[in-house]
Design a protein around this nucleic acid. Structure first.
Lengths: 151, 151
DNA sequence: TTAGGTGCAAATTCTTTGCACCCTG
DNA sequence: CAGGGTGCAAAGAATTTGCACCTAA
């Protein structure tokens, strides 16, 4: 699917290398390639999709390594997960504040930014629940491609 | 967990009965009890949790009936799903516009309302993706109960 | 009566784990 | 060289499906 600019990918890879060193985890080929694959995709692939992309460069990687790598990256705060609509977990290497458009028909996810949404103050009701780590808007709809297929 | 007022539960049940008749689906005990269980819970249970609640009244219901009923209710627009943080799908009988606070440690989900969020106009970028069916804010954090357990 | 619904159990799908070998640091 | 990391295969968990019986309309 869509791709991220090379400069941004390199920047993210650099961040990963730094964080890995600091956390004392090894920089294996597999981890680098899994992260590169995720960091350069514009949509939000699941583990299986990432596996296929990585296998083009490392034919022997296995699905379990992809999962282990993803959760490791997630623990390091380098990626985040996003919830499925009835399918599997998806991953996101964009840790800057942003929001999601999700197609309920095909599962496509696209990022967008919105200063307006970011500017809304946290409702006081939420304080009563607990601390806040992150917040984002999820917009559900039918993407143009799916709409075209089912008139 | 928390409970919804009886009057609201009855209102939701009435809506279900009307929608079921209109859609031509049968009002079985199982369906009524699954919907009642979901409609009266304040948090957002998964299928297994609902099963346990319903079994108090209908000891023979099975998990697959709970799933079938939930997807049927979802198709009818009477409930919606919400994405997991690494666990299973959860269901929500509150179809009024509202937002979610999610504890990343225990999975607790609480609803809240926010006129401020509702008032933000849809970013123009989103128009390019496709149509919009719904939108909500998801706030992630650590709930007070989990925070108390891990100082 | 009768088509749709249910319960059971088996099948699928997705994800995690145990273990022996491998490779980064 | 040592300990974490990997691949494989098998285990687990969550959800779906086939089928014969049941029940709401």
């Amino acid at each position: 699917m869509g791709n991220i600019e090379d400069s941004e990918v390199e920047l993210r890879l650099g961040r990963f290398k730094g964080a890995a060193k600091q956390a004392g985890v090894k920089l294996t080929h597999q981890r680098l390639e899994v992260f590169r694959e995720l960091a350069s995709s514009l949509d939000h692939p699941d583990a299986e999709t990432l596996l296929h992309g990585v296998q083009a460069r490392l034919p022997t990687v296995s699905l379990d390594t992809v999962y282990r790598t993803l959760w490791m990256l997630n623990n390091l705060g380098l990626i985040c997960t996003l919830g499925p609509r009835r399918d599997s977990v998806r991953f996101d290497a964009n840790v800057a504040p942003h929001h999601h458009y999700v197609c309920v028909a095909c599962g496509l996810v696209r990022d967008f930014e919105s200063a307006d949404f970011n500017a809304v103050p946290m409702p006081s009701r939420v304080e009563g629940f607990g601390s806040v780590v992150a917040s984002h808007v999820e917009i559900r709809g039918i993407c143009d491609e799916c709409a075209a297929q089912q008139p």
